[in-house]
Design a protein around this nucleic acid. Structure first.
Lengths: 335, 335
DNA sequence: TTTGTCTGGACAAAACTAGGACAAAATTGT
DNA sequence: ACAATTTTGTCCTAGTTTTGTCCAGACAAA
């Protein structure tokens, strides 16, 4: 996959005004100047009227330094580094950073900032307010911003999930109109749907079929799963909501998927859930695991264990099961 | 690149008065003249009495410069650029600053042949084949590539629209499984939903509420409208499918929208269509036009004309009606 | 007549620069 | 654990450049 195109073509010509640099890097104008004054982080060219003019090279440098700072590096330490060294530092840090969900405390250098305990609830409240005021633009902005603050899996778990529940709850209580809920849902459908395209695919990923069974019309849970698993190197075959068991089987076979994941939310007591799950399990190759999740899962524990389906309690649980599955299958394949 | 202009249907004929240009670009009349005076940003033709007459080309230029400024460019830097250079600069900038962090590049095949005049049907066939083989990745790739070749409106009209119809048709005839249709629909939902975020919003756009009435569960048509109108400087308030008339009214009022657009596809003979449309028209401010479109529109001609709704026969018709509406309302506003 | 556009110039707000001050946060020393 | 020290983000002033808005008088359009 030729993604290096843009990176390799960094233009050393100085042409960007400071305001644009601030926009692109997320730093303030003041800060950029302060860094230059104190540590000569960058040394921009000047226009004939002394305005600073930055090159792509400078911007890349500032961007990397910002990330390094976010990872806990001190400015004094990273300021003198070359671009190459900076890249190394950042990529090394982010490698550890992505495992923070697990038990990577050990690898966390002592000087690391303690993962900014910004209350996720604040973000969610702000989003709810945007929904209530029908401020779609603001809503989108908040969603995008929130995503920058943390890794995709934890974002889904701490922000998007709770947000969905609160929107549902508020609508039921009459705090939000149906129109509000519709707007929010439609927007989230687009937003979450786009999340998985942040990942790059190599073509060798194992596939997983993701959908909801007949009768289950809410697809956002399933869509979250699709975004989630693509982070861990799975290629989701996403079918949208309301797919009959036969079709799930056919799709799994045709695409050669190694797993199936279903989301159950509403209605929780739909009798079709039982029939569809039973049918699915009986027609599907026994070697292919079926994962079940969502709010309605609790109502069907007995059925799930009887059929031998897996229902990890959290998103993280699902991740671990899938990772284990992938590694195991990889071993078998190469053995 | 002479072909580019014909494809994106930019008219080089000069005929727009300065007031309309100001309206469409969001700039003030004074500012447009000042830019011309100081930097020769545009060089409009003149009437025989020295009035400035702007072409679509000029408007596009001004619009882009405005966005470039918003991105932090200085007027001095962007003023001398050609339209193509401006497009490059703007798309480069807006690609970056929306992704403040994380070097996730938009996947853009670098080998895309420039403006190949491939028959649209070939593209559609290739897409259908990708769907049939469950090759989601290829499907996405084709969708993205197709978009590069032409403007968004013509892409929707010549590719996406026909593709949707063919998918529906093929499924009914049994050429595609339900699973295939599901996969394609889910993917298109994400793809089309993301289209409107290619546009940059200035904050001054008039709003338009877009949805489908109760009973109409297919939202892709409505979603296409949302993408379409954002090209022409409208801000869509998108509510997803299946919205009751009361809620549409409430949403229109709360958001201050100037128009409503509904998509009717299936089922075409649902009696709720009549009741919902009637209810909507009676509760909604008479000054707010309601546009109706989609496959099922034909079945309700009598009702539509009786209620005084508008149903432009093509997407282009809708565009023109909306453009006219916007310009007209602006006049009234300033008067 | 009334409203809108034209030209040229004036003016003021906004943005940038340089240098420095200040306080919060992080780090180090005891 | 506490105090001293360093680091770092933000803000201030004053002078310059850039940019947006406004004005006046003449003319054109409705």
């Amino acid at each position: 996959m030729a993604t290096l195109e843009t990176i390799s073509s960094i233009d050393t010509a100085a042409r960007h005004p400071i305001r644009l640099v601030a926009n692109r890097t997320g730093l303030t104008v003041d800060l950029i100047r302060a860094w230059e004054k104190r540590y000569h982080v960058v040394d921009p060219a000047r226009s004939d009227t002394k305005r600073r003019l930055y090159s792509d090279y400078d911007i890349e440098r500032l961007r990397l330094i910002r990330i390094a700072k976010q990872n806990g590096r001190r400015l004094v330490d990273v300021a003198p580094l070359t671009l190459e060294e900076l890249r190394d530092v950042v990529s090394e840090d982010s490698r550890y950073d992505s495992i923070t969900d697990n038990q990577a405390e050990v690898y966390r250098p002592s000087w690391t900032s303690p993962l900014e305990a910004t209350d996720a609830q604040d973000d969610i409240d702000a989003m709810l307010f945007a929904v209530q005021t029908m401020d779609q633009h603001r809503f989108d902005q908040l969603l995008q911003e929130g995503l920058v603050k943390q890794s995709l899996p934890s974002y889904l778990e701490t922000v998007i999930g709770p947000l969905l529940r609160e929107i549902g709850e508020s609508t039921r209580l009459g705090k939000l109109r149906i129109a509000h809920e519709h707007m929010a849902t439609a927007h989230l459908r687009t937003f979450i749907g786009a999340l998985r395209f942040r990942e790059t695919y190599t073509g060798g990923e194992p596939k997983i079929v993701i959908t909801t069974p007949t009768g289950q019309l809410h697809e956002l849970g399933a869509l979250m799963i699709a975004a989630l698993v693509s982070v861990d190197g799975w290629l989701p075959v996403y079918l949208g909501p309301n797919t009959p068991a036969d079709e799930i089987v056919a799709c799994t076979n045709q695409s050669g998927a190694r797993a199936v994941s279903l989301s159950l939310t509403y209605p929780a007591d739909d009798p079709r859930i039982a029939t569809e799950l039973t049918r699915l399990r009986s027609q599907l190759d026994g070697k292919i695991p079926v994962f079940v999740g969502g709010a309605a899962t609790a109502h069907h524990q007995e059925l799930i264990s009887r059929l031998g389906l897996e229902s990890p309690p959290t998103l993280n649980g699902l991740r671990h099961s899938l990772n284990a599955l992938r590694d195991r299958q990889f071993k078998e394949q190469t053995a």
